[in-house]
């Protein structure tokens, strides 16, 4: 059950990011995606191997589900969030998009735990919420850095809306 649901979510998220209006260009979006994927990979590995606060499934098919979450869905959700966050000028819109993306990330965690993709050991959904909020902040930080690089080194003035 976990793999079909994850694949469905992945396809929806991929279509969404493909067709949405993006404020960052292709290069910036791919860097943001790759850096976020590096962070999620490291986060999961440290949580499982070092801190032992997560236990990932021994089953290979469930692990594929974790891979899709970690490599595609979470980083792409951050890319969607960052693009909307800098697109919207009104603060209430920024807050709404933050809440929606955090809601999606929390739901993803909920499904992962429900289907046994990951198991929390001395960990809970509240801590997970903090981690998801950190993802959003890191995403914005990367975005701001990329825009700064663009305006300082590449001579492009850019209205970041950040």
């Amino acid at each position: 059950m976990a793999v079909p649901i994850t694949v469905v979510l992945m396809i929806i998220v991929l279509f969404f990011v493909f067709f949405m209006k993006k404020r960052l260009n292709f290069l910036q979006n791919t860097i943001l995606y790759m850096v976020m994927a590096i962070i999620t990979k490291n986060y999961f590995s440290i949580m499982v191997m070092e801190l032992k606060l997560y236990k990932n499934a021994d089953d290979s098919s469930l692990f594929i589900s974790l891979l899709i979450d970690r490599e595609i869905i979470i980083p792409i959700l951050i890319v969607i969030f960052v693009n909307y966050f800098i697109e919207f000028r009104a603060w209430y819109k920024k807050i709404v998009v933050s809440i929606i993306i955090i809601g999606c990330l929390q739901l993803l965690d909920f499904f992962s735990v429900l289907f046994g993709v990951i198991e929390f050991v001395r960990w809970n959904m509240f801590y997970e919420l903090l981690i998801n909020m950190s993802y959003l902040l890191i995403g914005l930080g990367i975005c701001k850095t990329l825009l700064a690089i663009r305006s300082h080194w590449e001579g492009q003035q850019y209205d970041s809306n950040l």
Binding site: L27, I31, M34, A37, L146, I149, R150, E154
Partner: peptide
């Protein structure tokens, strides 16, 4: 600069993708 960063990050991303997939449990 952005292109250079992109090509650099691609290597780190790809290396980690494979290593954190086939060298971790299960």
């Amino acid at each position: 600069v952005t292109e250079g960063i992109a090509f650099f990050v691609f290597g780190v991303f790809a290396g980690m993708l494979f290593d954190h997939t086939i060298s971790v449990e299960p």
